[in-house]
Write a protein that binds this DNA or RNA. Structure first.
Lengths: 361, 361
DNA sequence: CTGTTAGCGCGTTCAA
DNA sequence: TTGAACGCGCTAACAG
């Protein structure tokens, strides 16, 4: 990766390094236009590309935003990534990507790598977990983040603070009202559904999943309904699919109509696919709702009832909380290094939870 | 972003910089274990994180892979991104992300930014375009890439070479047999479909789209069928949706069954949604096929006939062609700086192109 | 085997 | 305004 350097440009233009630097990169002091033109010309003929590494080293600011996701191919994360990317663009920065499949230790490693690259800020988009097997990983991740923040880094976390993380300066959280929205969803569903409810959830300890389960149960309770049974499975499409057989059995065994709440859309899709292969049709034989309102899934049939989440905005906010700390602080009085803004969602009832008016042919 | 430096560690451990460096970062020379332990301890208590920028500057190798996509939230690109990410992980590198919405000038800028960061290699995943309005952008992009390659950079392009790019050392292309696969698709469809065909394509000049159109027409011709009419629209879901009305009209006007080929899956989904809103049902009133076999869309009903593309492998290959140049060169005899490997796909006929056996109730 | 030294490419003080 | 010199943090030649 050899390329022409600033000193080469300076020599060709017959000026000093300092002058060339002032011309080519934004400086407060503006050299004479005559000289400037010569320098620019020299840079052009040499095909000069400033070495960002060296600039970063000299200025100690890299122009990098680190983004940590579980899986970039998951539409949930790629939507957030788009938001982060957008914010980065506006801040004139670039996005460094890391996929960790959710393991705290991998995330710790990613944070360390970002810190090594002196990323200006880090966005952590994956759901936090409180599972015992993740305890050590969480501790180490928290320590790594803490150190990063202490060194002047900014962190934006989506959803929940990292377990055990200190409320350090520069540490921000984009709050996602998973619980309240799930409660609203339950309330609305309870209004039209008379049978029982079942929740297809992610592994115990996964905050996002747990929040949605808790909220849904609360909504049910508020509506005077008994708590739903909870099936634990993987937090992805495959997990939903695996939950299929148990659900099929329950549906076929009872005359009562069942309403399934899968804690995210891709799980709901997995469940639907599994049920379908068993001859159970939505919404004829049972109804189902998801969460996230994933864009790619909106054309699904039956249209999936779900909760819309402004994923792109979430990413933008998380990425922006680093650069726009001042604004965020101004908006919220106290506790301003924890708060990075919050977003709201919206319950979307669609065909998958419609109660059929009458039996079709 | 201040952090403890190597010299601080060295001082605390009572050794020289060089020794500390040798201990903490991989070096051929291994210091005595007693000293090494002291250094590691010092690094640990200081929370030392090596400055990758400085390392890169000294070694002139950044450990960065630049990835250029049109839109990271598009499942096609996020699947490729996953592959790139995976390859990066294996190479012990990190991925730098840039979304450009397909404008060559934006891509040029991204390449420059990657070059500035001294990325070891750059992967360009978006479709190339030969539209006249992109001519200047293509030229500049090609020039930028050329310079990058000449400076020792490696480039991996998915699908088509950048228009006008020199076949420079370090320039690789992952060939995607869009045309042949589209021809196969046409052949298989022609075997069971008796009516006319229509193609819903992207803008004229978009290589990926044009290739698929050409291949499909060729397959049709080989099967003794007349060429399909081509509707030009946006290369995304919205484009497909917009093509709906025209298709509806055609379908309702004629008694003949129509088979639609949308040049990618998301367009096919858009078309399907539009038709459905007009009361046209797939595969009852018409059939449709897409291209890409997007994972998130596999649970769609009616199941979409399409052409499977190993997107993740494509990303892996494109990213690997930089690091594994030697292997790639060995595999292909001549022309080895252009060839980075090729992939194959597979026609997947599903329900969306099934001819109904008889009319249901 | 260890320590010293000279860059890597650039920003930024200082004098001039 | 311009230029010379130093330092950013680290690696890789040397010398010891």
């Amino acid at each position: 990766m050899a390329a022409s350097t600033l000193s080469e440009v300076a020599r060709l233009a017959g000026v000093s390094l300092a002058t060339a630097s002032r011309v080519l990169n934004g400086s407060s002091r503006k050299p004479a236009e005559g000289i400037a033109e010569r320098v620019r010309e020299a840079a052009d003929t040499l095909g000069y590309v400033p070495n960002a590494q060296a600039q970063a080293l000299a200025k100690s600011s890299s122009g990098l935003i680190g983004l940590i996701v579980h899986d970039i191919a998951d539409p949930y994360f790629s939507a957030i990534a788009r938001g982060v990317q957008d914010a980065a663009r506006q801040q004139n920065r670039m996005v460094l990507l890391a996929s960790t499949s959710g393991a705290p230790l991998d995330e710790r490693e990613a944070v360390a790598a970002f810190a090594a690259r002196r990323a200006d800020s880090i966005v952590i988009a994956g759901s936090r977990s409180a599972r015992t097997e993740d305890a050590q990983g969480n501790t180490e991740l928290a320590a790594e983040l803490d150190r990063y923040c202490r060194n002047g880094g900014h962190v934006g976390v989506v959803g929940h603070p990292v377990v055990g993380a200190a409320h350090a300066e520069g540490y921000h959280v984009v709050e996602v009202p998973n619980e309240d929205l799930a409660a609203s969803l339950a309330t609305e569903l309870a209004a039209s559904h008379e049978g029982a409810f079942v929740i297809v959830a992610g592994p115990d300890g996964l905050f996002t999943s747990d929040d949605r389960v808790r909220g849904f149960q609360r909504g049910l309770a508020d509506a005077g309904r008994p708590a739903a049974k909870v099936i634990r499975t993987g937090f992805n499409r495959a997990g939903g699919y695996e939950a299929g057989p148990a659900l099929t059995e329950r549906i076929k065994a009872s005359d009562e109509r069942l309403c399934i709440f899968a804690v995210n859309d891709v799980m709901a899709i997995g469940v639907t696919a599994a049920l379908r292969s068993d001859g159970v049709w939505i919404p004829r034989d049972a109804t189902i709702a998801g969460f996230d309102d994933i864009e790619t899934l909106r054309d699904f049939r039956p249209a999936l009832s779900t909760v819309y989440l402004p994923l792109e905005d979430i990413g933008r906010l998380a990425a922006g909380s680093a650069a726009g700390s001042a604004a965020a602080s101004a908006a919220s009085g106290a506790d301003n290094h924890l708060y990075a803004g919050s977003v709201s969602g919206e319950v979307k009832l669609r065909r998958s939870t419609e109660v059929p008016a009458e039996t079709p042919s």
